[in-house]
Simulated assay, not measured.
Amino acid sequence: MMRDQATFEPTKSRVTQPKFWGALPARWNSDVDDTLVCCHVRQETHDVKSFFFKAPDERAFVFEPGQFITLELDIDGEPVNRCYTISSAPTRPHTISITVKRVPGGKVSNWLHDNVVAGARVRVLGPSGEFTCARHPARKFLFLSAGSGITPLMSMSRAHHELGDDADIVFVHSARTPDDIIFARELDLIASNHANFRTAFVCERVGARTNWPGITGFLSLPLLKLIAPDYLDREVFTCGPAPYMQAVRNLLDEGGFDRKHYHEESFSFETIAEVASQLTTAHVADAIAADSQFVETSDFAPAPADTTYMVAFAKSRREIECGSGEHVLDAAKKAGVRLPSSCTQGMCGTCKVKLVSGEVAMKHAGGIRQREIDQGMVLLCCSKPLSDLVVDK
C-alpha cells in the first residue's frame, strides 16, 4: 500500500539549536554586559563544585589560561566581591567555569555552593591576571599545586590538551587525601592522550582509600627530584595556600632553581583568611619576616585631609575625584568605576595596577612584592593619592 508522499518529507525540528553552533559569536565584555547565567553545576569532590556560566546573548569568552574573574555578589544585603581563577580553557569559548571549594565558615564559598544553580545570574568582572603560561612560553613546564590551587594549572593543562600541543608538562598536585584530588580522572585522561604530560599526586594521608597506590606525605626536594629530575630546566607555575607556596619557594631555592623561571598565583582571599585564622599572630609575623619581598610600607606622609586630586583611568578614559584621605578604590567605586577587587585590605593583590604617573601613600599587607612596586605597580585598595594620578586601567 502506498503512503501519502507528504509523510516522507522532512519536517523542521521543533528544537531551536544553540546560536553557537556555527560562527564564533562576538566577544563578551564585562564593561558592556556584566551578567552571566549559570548553565551547569558539577560536583567534583565531596566539598568542591565547578560552576559553568554563559553570556545571555551567547557571546564568546576570551582569556588566557590561568586568569581569574571577579564575582560581584549580594549576600544577605551586603555587596561582596570575590576572585576565582577560571578553571575552563579558552579553547572552549562559549562557557566559562570556576571551581570552588567549600571553606568552613567561608561566606562566599558556602553561599555559592548553597545558592548557585542552573539559571542563576551573577555579576562578573574580568577576566584579569598575569599568571599564565601564555606569557611565558617554554619547552618544558612544571606545574605545582595544592588543594583548589589546582584551578589555574588545570586551565593551562586543558588548553594544551585541547590544542593538541604535546608540551612536556609534569603536573604535581598535593591534596589531603586521594578523595580530595580535584580533576583526578581528567588529569589521567590527559596523561593517557599525551605522552609528554605526566602527573604525580602527593596525599598527606590515605583517608578512606586503604589501597591508595600513590605517594603519601608532603612534597620535598628529594621527592621532586624523583618526580621531575630535570626540574631546574623547567618553567615553574605554582598555586596553593600561602604556606604551601612558601614551602615550594624554599625547596626550589635549596635546589638552586633560578627564580626568573618561577611564577606563582596568590590564593583566593577566602582561603587566605581560612589559613590565617589557624595561625597565631606570631606565626603570621614570622612568615612575613621570613619573606621580605612581601613587606613594603610607603614612607610618604599623607597630604592634608582636605586636598582633592584627580585620578584618570587611561584605558577606560574615566576621571574621578579622590580625597587625600581616601583610598583610590573606594573613590572609584563611589564614582561607578568597576575595578577588580576582593579583600580590600592589601592582601590578595586583585586590585594591582600600573601607576603611569603620580604618587600614592600605600600601606599593604603582603599583596604586592617589592619588585612590583619598583616597576610602578600599586594596590588601589590601600593607596591614598599624594598628587593627581594616571592609572593604566
Rank of each mutant, 00 (worst) to 15 (best):
L73W: 04
S88R: 06
S88C: 12
I69S: 03
V100Q: 03
I98Y: 10
Y84R: 11
A89K: 11
I86C: 08
K107C: 03
E78V: 15
W111P: 00
I96V: 02
L73Y: 05
Q67L: 06
K107R: 11
H94S: 07
I98D: 00
T91C: 12
I98L: 06
H94L: 13
G105A: 08
R92T: 14
G106C: 02
P93M: 10
A89V: 12
I98H: 01
I98T: 04
Y84L: 13
L71H: 04
K101Y: 07
D74N: 14
S88Y: 14
L71S: 11
S87D: 13
I96K: 01
R82Y: 04
N81H: 14
I86R: 01
R82W: 04
L112S: 06
N115I: 08
K107S: 08
L73A: 06
R102F: 06
I75Y: 03
V103D: 07
S97H: 09
P104E: 05
E72D: 10
P79H: 12
P93Q: 01
P90Q: 03
Y84C: 08
C83S: 15
P79D: 13
S97P: 13
G77F: 06
K101Q: 10
T91D: 15
V116K: 02
L112T: 15
F68T: 00
P79M: 08
P93D: 07
N115Y: 01
R82E: 05
R82P: 00
E72G: 11
P104Q: 13
I96F: 03
L73S: 04
L112D: 02
P104M: 10
L71N: 04
P79I: 15
I96E: 02
I75L: 02
D114G: 05
R102T: 15
R82V: 10
T85H: 05
S87L: 09
E78C: 04
V103A: 02
V80N: 03
H113L: 07
D74S: 11
D74Y: 04
V100T: 08
T95N: 06
G105S: 08
T85Q: 00
K107Y: 00
D74Q: 12
W111N: 02
G105R: 04
G66E: 05
G77Q: 05
E72P: 02
K107I: 14
N110P: 03
L71P: 00
K101N: 06
Y84T: 09
N115E: 04
T95F: 11
V116D: 00
P93K: 09
G77L: 04
S88V: 11
A89R: 12
T70N: 07
S109H: 01
R92L: 10
V116G: 02
I69A: 02
S87P: 10
E78Q: 08
I86Q: 07
V108Q: 01
S109K: 07
V80I: 12
R102E: 09
I69R: 00
T99N: 07
N81C: 12
F68V: 03
P93L: 07
